[in-house]
Design a protein around this nucleic acid. Structure first.
Lengths: 225, 225
DNA sequence: AAAGATAATGACCAGGTGGTCATCAATCTG
DNA sequence: CAGATTGATGACCACCTGGTCATTATCTTT
């Protein structure tokens, strides 16, 4: 956070926007493909067709480059997050869940590399700025879902006897995993979500929300009525 | 698969069991901590107090060592998997889900390093034998869950109108993520599952299964009856 | 056009990697 | 005990890494 303005050097900031973008987006690809340590500056500069020394004139170090890449991705993610948070008040709880899923899919479609980078960071413990990323994301996902659930309870859409933290975890797991399955093939055991077309995706979102809403159990209402 | 008998050299197989185990389990730690590429043979042999040359007399290459490590972990995982698959016939669907969760927790408690290694492999695309691992796991999780769900439908425990692949995905996501949250702190936004004690864990498993069973929606039975 | 400032370059560096192999130590065999 | 066989060893190799910096090229200003 501190010195963030210094991380891409002044030299880099003076570069034509076009070149700046090309460098950042190529670097995103490199990190998303290989993780932090396996990512290679040599390979990057070869892909870019510039000299290695230039990279270190633009960014103080590999870590500095990564920080710039990371900040770039966070910026990309900001808009959709706000968009989701400010859903119209009239929407019901399960509509909001559906909208969240749709916005998530929209994001990973628009920025697949950024999302891949996020996935890489999750399980590669020695990534720099891991803590920073995770705290930022927690701020979003957990708090957002808890708000949603409490509102849903107040409005009578959700059972009152529910354990809120468990429900937060429940939803977080499902939403996150749904998005992951769209991007990473093998998370999707039954191969229905991964890279699905719009129509099929809508159906699966519908089915999915239905499960979140009512669970798996067969209704026994007939017996009681 | 081919040449699997050749992968740990005869020299290694002649070693006293004690030393063999120490080498494998230290290697598991190294790979679980650092992933494949970041794992260092130099560091490993230093930890073990043996010469680097020895490792290459025991295993043909770093990849060979990893294969041995991997096979070792799969062997560790086999017993609990079988145990789960052969649950007593009398058990209801949701009891089986509960038992699956409990068995999963028991496994990661007994072999945390093996599980960490699995997590590392998931998002590190250039890991060797990734396909092999994933196909093995799919065989378990998806097929097993599908069986369970179909049985549950036949017995009338699960709604008949359910979309089976979606339900498989739904369950797979939840079970997997529950186990992950026990091991990896930050998956557990609300910090209730991670490394929980037996009593608390039982409660959370109960709450969790309740959600899987009935979903989030408030029951509206009162109105209809 | 000349002078000065700024940016691009790639040979070079120290350090680490997986892997090799001649040498040495120990055990087994006759 | 002598000879042979096997296993342990670590100096060494080629290669790659992030990072440096003197040199060169380009642009700006006068």
């Amino acid at each position: 956070m501190r010195n963030r303005a210094e991380v891409p050097t002044e030299v880099f900031r003076k570069l034509p926007a076009e070149k700046r973008e090309r460098i950042i987006s190529t670097a995103v690809e490199e990190f998303a493909e290989h993780g932090f340590h396996q990512a290679s500056i040599n390979r990057l500069v070869k892909r870019l067709g510039i000299a290695k020394g230039s990279i270190f004139q633009y960014f103080t170090s590999k870590e500095g480059l990564f920080q710039a890449v990371f900040d770039h991705c966070v910026d990309q993610a900001r808009k959709p997050l706000r968009e989701i948070k400010h859903h119209p008040e009239g929407m019901g709880f399960f509509d909001k869940i559906r909208a969240t899923l749709e916005a998530g899919i929209r994001f990973v479609r628009a920025h697949p590399q950024a999302y891949k980078l996020y996935l890489k960071m999750i399980f590669q413990e020695n990534f720099p700025y891991r803590e920073k990323l995770l705290s930022r994301l927690h701020l979003f996902s957990a708090d957002y879902l808890e708000d949603l659930i409490r509102q849903g309870i107040e409005k009578g859409e959700i059972r009152k006897d529910i354990n809120v933290p468990t429900a937060v975890f429940f939803l977080d797991a499902l939403l996150d995993r749904f998005i992951q399955a769209y991007v990473v093939a093998f998370w999707d055991a039954s191969s229905v979500i991964h890279q699905a077309k719009d129509e099929d995706l809508k159906k699966h979102i519908e089915e999915f929300v239905k499960l979140i809403r009512s669970g798996l159990e067969a209704k026994t209402n007939e017996h009681t009525c």
